[in-house]
Amino acid sequence: CLIENLGSTSSPLKRNVCRFSQFSSLSDVAISEDIPVEGEITVPVGSQSLEDDYSTLDEPVRDTIMRDLKAVGKKFVHVLYPKKSSALLRDWDLWGPLILCVSLALMLQSGSVDKRDEGGPQFAEVFVIIWFGAVVITLNSKLLGGTISFFQSLCVLGYCILPLTVAMIVCRLVLLGGQGTVSFIIRFIIVIASFAWSTFASTAFLADSQPPNRKALAVYPIFLFYFVISWMILTYSTT
């Protein structure tokens, strides 16, 4: 220790110099090769991450299309048998809503296909009403404190149009037999049942994502959204 050369230096300084001299002596210490070192820092070559397991870059296009079609079909089944499930929320997509929206708009457009000045705007009207209405409902849900994402809500609202699309197909078949009181009553019952089905299915998936004291405020715009679409289907005419 260097305390001997400090003479009249105060004791705290002596202790600090002594400590410094002790730590400086550690620089001469070397780790022997015989001392085992625990742990591994190398990564096995054959190991794969979770992202590699779900990678589809090398997948054939046919397999990708079939997998997406199966996913869309499963979501249709969830809408036909509505229950509290996270399938539509977990694996959301917009392919199903786009197919249903275009199909419904085309079927409503063909009612005035002979009128050139009405065919285009009617298709655009249906398309805009569906997507704009879904966006407004989604924004309302987020402002009320909803816990699902923007596209998850669009996915659920779009897929739940399926009962109304089926009702549109049935109504067109009924209209082939002619228009009258009986035809209107049949179409009215079909549309009302599909409207209730769509509303119930959408609320079954979206209700739990809203605060308990604000569920009514979130369900009311959904009710109006499907009511407008149902009214367009009910008032459809082939003439």
Rank of each mutant, 00 (worst) to 15 (best):
L50N: 06
V61A: 06
Q48S: 11
R90G: 00
T64P: 00
G73K: 04
G120T: 08
V79M: 13
V128F: 07
G111H: 02
D93G: 14
L57P: 00
A124F: 15
G133L: 06
S47T: 15
F76M: 15
T138F: 15
L144Y: 05
A71C: 01
L100S: 14
G111N: 00
K84G: 02
L88A: 13
F76R: 11
R62E: 09
D53Y: 02
R67I: 04
L143F: 12
A105W: 09
S55N: 09
G120S: 10
L104V: 02
A87W: 14
R90Y: 05
L88Q: 13
V102Y: 07
V45F: 07
T64L: 10
L100F: 15
D58F: 03
G39D: 06
G73L: 04
L50Y: 03
T64Q: 09
L100P: 13
V126F: 07
P97G: 10
V102C: 08
D117I: 02
M66L: 15
I99V: 14
Q109E: 09
W95F: 10
T42L: 13
P60C: 09
L80W: 11
S49C: 13
S55T: 00
R67Q: 04
K142S: 07
I99W: 08
P82Q: 10
D114H: 03
G145V: 09
D68K: 05
P60I: 05
S141M: 15
R67E: 05
I130C: 00
W95A: 10
I99F: 12
I41V: 08
